[in-house]
Every structure is written in C-alpha cells, then in structure tokens.
C-alpha cells in the first residue's frame, strides 16, 4: 500500500524526494503501465513521485537542428505533431499505433522507453532514428544513446528510484537524403500489442545513390527492441533496390530470435514475418526517400 503520492513542482524537488526515500519511491508519469504493474505486484513502491505536472518536459520542438521531445509528451502529442509528421513520420505513425486513444492521451514517450518493453512501438521507432536521451539525477545530467538505456537482459538501465528521463532528441530525416518507415502486424487493427513491429531509417547522399547508413529495429524478437546489425551492415554502401533489400531482410530474419508464443505465433512464423516486414519497411522507406511515398 502506498504511503504517499507526491506531485513535485520542479525537477529538483522530484529528485530530492526520490533521494529522501532512497529506493522506496519511484517516478510515475502517465502511469498506464505502472499502475497495472503496481496492482499486479510486479513492481513495488511505497511512494510515488508524479512528475506529470512538470510542464517543461512536455514539448516537441526543433532546436539547433535536432528534434527535441520532452519525456512527458504523450503518444497523442507525438501522433498529432505536424513537426513529426513532416520530419519523422515513422515516429508519429508508431505513436499513433499504441493502445487506444485513452491510453495515448495519458501514456508518455518517456514511459514507453523506461518501461523497456521489447515491442514498445514508439521506442522502436525512436531507436531506428538513433535517438539520444537526457537523464538527470542529483549527480547531474547525462546524454546517452537511447539504446544504452536498455539492459541486454531486458528491462531498463535507468534507475526509476534515482534518475529521471527528461528528453529525447534525434536528427530530423532530411528531405531526399533519408527515408523511414514503421510497419506493424497485430491481431486486431487497434488496441492490440504487435505480433511484430519494424522501424527502419535509411540514408543516402544522392538520389538513387548508394546507402550511407541504415538502421533496422524490430520487436518483440529479443529481450529488448532488437537492432538487425548484420542487415544494416549489408545495406551500408549498397545500392537501394530489391536485391539489397531482400538480402538485408533475409539477414534480419536470421538474426531475430523470436520465441514461440501462444499469443503471437510460433518462432518460425515470426521469423518469416520478420523477413517480409523488413522488406516491406525498406521498400516504403526507399519510396519516402525518393519523395514518392505515402510517408509513414
């Protein structure tokens, strides 16, 4: 049973409350995951520190050539943001596919990351965008690569009793030099966890030229959102097209380690699905890069 529910007015106050309770207090933002975890006793806390009143942590802006998203921005904020729809459409699409409207109105992008589910749609898209996270604690603030916030054994490296994720940033997809896509398969069209989701971003310096970089992230095929590094490697320096995309998709499926799941389907089925969906995502990303796509 909770002893106290704090609503600090500043980040400093939030950190000092966390410090006072030395591990017995933890941060709550939207709470759409945490409330259930507390009810089911999967997470223990004596005290909650609700940071949702910290307005400065709810923003989506372009600052110094990067897109900066406050950790308290909701999935609805992300999916409705015209800035993201233009400069990172895969992210607004991913955020718009989370849960129901009631969940998207409350659940935050920071929570999606810190909760560290391997198939969290918004986080999967952010990882494909090579996002960086700002984490603050009483010892100061640090910038870390988003993927470093994930423990290889699953779960988050961030300590919710001591640290607060405040901001996520990434470079916008520049027109005709980068293309992205987010694709997802679920048992229903809405309010369903993904059987598999894939986010990709590809870069090219000149039209129809060789790819200079590629990131392919998918879930849930491992304990964390999974980067298909071999597939990415094969794409770097390759010319975009069916041949290189098919090869990359095959490698991504090889690398993926889905488990047999009564809910999501067999491992064999989802490996095949990974191949098909990575190919599909790369093809959409390419048409977005070429400026012909539906841009999603």
């Amino acid at each position: 049973m909770l002893e106290a529910y704090y609503k600090p007015a500043s980040l400093e106050e939030a950190l000092s409350i966390l410090d006072d309770f030395a591990g017995r207090a933890r941060v709550i933002a939207g709470g759409t995951d945490l409330v259930l975890q507390l009810m089911h006793k999967e997470v223990a806390a004596d005290v909650l520190v609700d940071i949702s009143g910290l307005r400065q942590l709810r923003k989506i802006r372009e600052e110094n050539g990067r897109i900066v998203i406050g950790a308290l921005s909701t999935h609805t904020d992300l999916s409705e943001s015209s800035l993201l729809q233009e400069k990172a459409p895969l992210l607004s699409a991913a955020a718009g596919s989370v849960g129901s409207l009631q969940i998207r109105n409350v659940g935050t992008v920071g929570g999606n990351i810190v909760n560290a589910q391997p198939a969290a749609d918004t986080a999967v898209a952010l990882l494909a965008l090579d996002a960086t996270a700002k984490v603050v604690s009483l010892s100061g603030e640090k910038q870390v690569l988003l993927e470093e916030l994930y423990s290889p054994l699953g779960g988050s490296n961030l300590n919710p009793c001591r640290e607060i994720l405040t901001e996520i940033s990434f470079a916008p997809l520049s027109k005709s030099k980068a293309g992205g896509a987010f694709v997802r398969l679920a048992r229903r069209k809405a309010v369903a966890l993904p059987v598999l989701n894939v986010a990709v971003v590809i870069h090219s310096e000149e039209a129809k030229g060789a790819l200079t970089d590629a990131r392919i992230v998918m879930g849930p095929v491992a304990l964390t959102p999974f980067r298909a590094r071999k597939a990415e490697q094969v794409l770097r320096g390759s010319f975009p097209g069916e041949e290189s995309f098919c090869r990359a998709a095959g490698l991504a499926a090889d690398e993926a380690r889905p488990r047999d799941s009564r809910f999501r389907g067999s491992a064999a089925y989802r490996k095949e699905l990974a191949r098909v969906m990575v190919l599909r995502a790369l093809t959409i990303a390419q048409s977005n890069l070429d400026g012909q796509g539906v841009n999603r």
């Binding site: 709470g31 409330v35 909650l48 949702s52 109105n105 409350v106």
Partner: peptide, 15 residues
C-alpha cells in the same frame, strides 16, 4: 477535455 481510462488513473492526478 481528454478521454482517459479512470481505472488506470491515480486519483491524485486530477488535482
């Protein structure tokens, strides 16, 4: 003005 699920919403949030 936003629809939310009251079953997942800590009461103190509505202060």
């Amino acid at each position: 003005n936003e629809a939310v699920n009251a079953c997942l919403y800590p009461a103190w949030k509505v202060e």
